[in-house]
C-alpha cells in the first residue's frame, strides 16, 4: 500500500517536471531561438501529453477500442460511400479539362482535384463529427458503455480518434485517386511548360500536392473536433450547422483581422466595438485559410515545410483544446 503511494508521488513529481520543461520549451518556441520553433513546440506538446498520461492514467485500451469500433461503424454509414464515390468522380473530372495553355490546364487539375478532396473531406468530417456521439446517445448505446469502466473523457477521445482515423482513410483514398490522375497528366503538362521556358520542376509540384493534402488532413481534424465538441451539448443538426459556419467564417479569418486592425481614418472610421468583436472572432476562429495552399500551388510559390508544420501544429493545438472542452461538456451530460 505504502509502496504504491510512493510510486504515485514519484509519478506525479515526474509529471510536474515534464510540464515545467514543456513550459520552458514553449517559451523558447515563442522566442523563436534559431528558428527552432517547430521543434520546441512539438517537443513541448509531446511532454505535456506524457505528463497528462502519467497524471490521469487513461485506459488506453478502452480508448483504442472505442476508436476502432467507431471506425468500423463509420465505414458502414451510407453517406460516407456516397460522398466517396462523388469525390472520386470529381477528382476524375478534374483531368478532363483541355484548355488553352498547359499552365492553365495544370492549374485546373490542381484546383479542382484538391478542391474536391477538401470539399468532400469537409462534408465527411462535419457529418461524422456531429453524428457520432449524438447517435450513441439517441440510440442509447452509450448507456451500456458508460456502465463499463470507461471514463466519459475516454469515450469522447476514442470517438474523436475514431472519427479522425476514418476521415484520414477517406482522404487517403481520395488522395490516391487524385495522385493517379495527377501522375498521368502532370508530367506532360510540366514538360510542355518547361519547353516554353517556365522554371518549374515536377518533383517540386508533386511535393506541393502532398503538402496540400497533408494540410487538409489537419484542417479536417479541427473541423471534426468542432463538430464533436458542439454535439456534446447540442443536437447534431445544430452542431453540423455550427461547424459549417465556423468553417466558412474561418476562411475569412484574415478579413476579421483586417477590420480589427484597420486604422486609416481617412478611409473610414470603424466603430470600436465592431473592432473589438472582430478581434475576438479573429482570435477564436481556427484560421482555416492557412490550411488552403492551393493559391500558392497555382502561382508556383514555394511552400516551406516549416509553414506546413506550424499550420499543422496550430490545428493540433486547436483540436486538443476543443476535445478537452468536449470531455468537460460530456462529463455533465445525463442519459
Amino acid at each position: 500500500m505504502d509502496k504504491k503511494r510512493g510510486a504515485g508521488v514519484a509519478a506525479r513529481s515526474l509529471a510536474i517536471m515534464l510540464l515545467l520543461v514543456a513550459i520552458g520549451l514553449v517559451a523558447l518556441a515563442v522566442l523563436n531561438l534559431q528558428g527552432l520553433r517547430l521543434l520546441f513546440g512539438s517537443l513541448a506538446l509531446l511532454l505535456v501529453g506524457i505528463a497528462a498520461a502519467i497524471l490521469l492514467q487513461p485506459n488506453f485500451r478502452a480508448i483504442y477500442r472505442v476508436a476502432s469500433a467507431t471506425f468500423f461503424e463509420a465505414r458502414r454509414r451510407r453517406f460516407m460511400n456516397v460522398i466517396l464515390i462523388f469525390a472520386v468522380i470529381l477528382v476524375g473530372l478534374s483531368s478532363f479539362f483541355a484548355t488553352l495553355s498547359p499552365s492553365a490546364e495544370l492549374n485546373m487539375l490542381l484546383d479542382i482535384g484538391l478542391g474536391s478532396i477538401r470539399l468532400c473531406g469537409m462534408l465527411i468530417a462535419v457529418f461524422l463529427g456531429a453524428r457520432l456521439i449524438a447517435d450513441e446517445v439517441d440510440k442509447k448505446t452509450v448507456d451500456v458503455i458508460l456502465a463499463k469502466p470507461v471514463r466519459r473523457a475516454e469515450f469522447v477521445i476514442g470517438k474523436f480518434l475514431g472519427a479522425w482515423i476514418t476521415v484520414t482513410c477517406f482522404l487517403l483514398v481520395m488522395g490516391v485517386a487524385f495522385f493517379i490522375v495527377y501522375q498521368i497528366k502532370a508530367p506532360q503538362l510540366v514538360a510542355k511548360m518547361q519547353a516554353v521556358g517556365m522554371a518549374l520542376s515536377l518533383e517540386e509540384t508533386s511535393a506541393n500536392v502532398l503538402k496540400a493534402t497533408l494540410l487538409i488532413l489537419f484542417e479536417m481534424m479541427v473541423l471534426t473536433s468542432i463538430a464533436i465538441t458542439v454535439s456534446t451539448f447540442a443536437s447534431w443538426i445544430f452542431s453540423a450547422v455550427f461547424a459549417f459556419t465556423t468553417y466558412f467564417a474561418g476562411q475569412l479569418s484574415s478579413y476579421f483581422h483586417h477590420i480589427a486592425t484597420f486604422n486609416d481614418k481617412s478611409v473610414a472610421i470603424i466603430n470600436p466595438s465592431i473592432k473589438m468583436f472582430s478581434w475576438v472572432i479573429y482570435r477564436l476562429l481556427p484560421h482555416f485559410e492557412f490550411f488552403d495552399i492551393r493559391e500558392k500551388l497555382l502561382t508556383h510559390d514555394p511552400v516551406y515545410w516549416e509553414m506546413i508544420g506550424m499550420t499543422a501544429g496550430h490545428g493540433v493545438l486547436y483540436s486538443l483544446v476543443l476535445v478537452a472542452l468536449a470531455c468537460v461538456f460530456f462529463s455533465y451530460r445525463e442519459f
Partner: peptide
C-alpha cells in the same frame, strides 16, 4: 454488470 431496459447495441 448492467442490463438496461430495452437494451440497445451496435
Amino acid at each position: 454488470g448492467y442490463v438496461p431496459d430495452g437494451p440497445y447495441f451496435y
